[in-house]
Design a protein around this nucleic acid. Sequence first.
DNA 1: TGACATTTCAAACATCTGTTTCAAACTGGT
DNA 2: ACCAGTTTGAAACAGATGTTTGAAATGTCA
Lengths: 239, 239
Amino acid sequence: MGAPPGIDSNATQAATRRALLDAAAAEFAGRGFHGATVRDICRQAGANVAAVNYHFGDKESLYSEVLAELSAQAQKRFPAEAGLPPDAAPRQRLAAFIRSLLQRVLSEELSARHGRIMAREMVEPTDALNRLVREFIQPQADLLRDILRDLLPASIDPETSRLCALSIVGQILFYAHCRPVLQRLKPEGSFDRLELDRLARHITEFSLAALEVLGGRGSPGAVAAPRKRPVRTRSRSRS
Amino acid sequence: MGAPPGIDSNATQAATRRALLDAAAAEFAGRGFHGATVRDICRQAGANVAAVNYHFGDKESLYSEVLAELSAQAQKRFPAEAGLPPDAAPRQRLAAFIRSLLQRVLSEELSARHGRIMAREMVEPTDALNRLVREFIQPQADLLRDILRDLLPASIDPETSRLCALSIVGQILFYAHCRPVLQRLKPEGSFDRLELDRLARHITEFSLAALEVLGGRGSPGAVAAPRKRPVRTRSRSRS
DNA sequence: TGACATTTCAAACATCTGTTTCAAACTGGT
DNA sequence: ACCAGTTTGAAACAGATGTTTGAAATGTCA
């Protein structure tokens, strides 16, 4: 499986870093932080055992770097507000949010590495999770909160609104976290582009339906159904 | 931390098995299969390093036994249809299902061991997962399918119904799987009895609202709102 | 009590892990 | 072509891990 000697060698030296990062991403996603060994990573990268320590200091730093890179890649490839007009209706923004998050964690285009490695990180957190939450997850949570603020009546209980956000995210991440179980329950299922679209559509409809009812119920006068509403420029941070 | 010598020793010899199982449950739940070491397990059980191999053969067999026992415990402590009258309305049955599953994976009463260890098993499956799916998860999936069959109009697309079931389960398991992240996003949050009740209520309302709309939409004539319906004796297996 | 099986124990074993070491190979600039 | 700095390589190190071993302790039953 290893590349024939003399090919990588000819390339620039710094290419070893890249090869290590790629191999590490594959190994970490496949076996987890503890399960992946630097030996396997180096072998797969066509490098020496000492390469990881030389280029990254230690295994954990390499892992941290892989994690950040994978998250950034996924965010860039599938931004939360993909191709949305700036004045998009809240419903459209929610649909885009759901779709992009689902793609980020499931898309085979990125070998589903991001989803797999994030699932592991959430179950068995390393120090890298703190940074991840701060840089990637928190902003996403804020974004969803803002979208829901526009979708739900202003009078709704903030805690209810928060729980709704968690319900939406839960539906999405479920597919990334429970993949092994889902595959055993329905072996013929896949997560290709088509199926992924279907999932995104379902989750969006399911959630919008729930929000409609809960919003309408929470405050009598509120408009929950999609209507022309006064334009609202994104979220304003309250000082 | 270890029990004073002479106490365990006086008890029957087979008590070592129990001590090992308990210690192993704690360690496996806390550190995962690979992270937990037989040395730590034995120390915590007040037993010798060789005890695991003597009583269970090897580490993996011990793990498998712990997993099965934990699942059985959780199912018994929080049965899916807790205290429901046999003719309970589908809405009640769904509420009970959600509540019990949430309790099973989150309740601190069982140290949340079941949820933690199951989350790990789903992310990093071992051979034990096959048995687990067959004996515990599949029956639960069937039960939820039957409940939804009663809640949704008969004319609804079966695939949509399936996705609804996944949406419901996803909302629940989310809290078990993403606990580390949730705690970082909202450090003061806990999962005590009160909070757990609130979660169960929210997920039930959120899901019922969605089912109502989706059910009403799916087939024009169907009754989705809770009404008197012809009594239906549980699910019948189609030959 | 005495013989037998069961259970415990300390020690050792074999393997695997991340990391270090230091010499060799390579790079770009002069 | 030469040299300083960088990168690679094979080997070894130190520690941890699951497992095995054989003797000692304990329990069971006649």
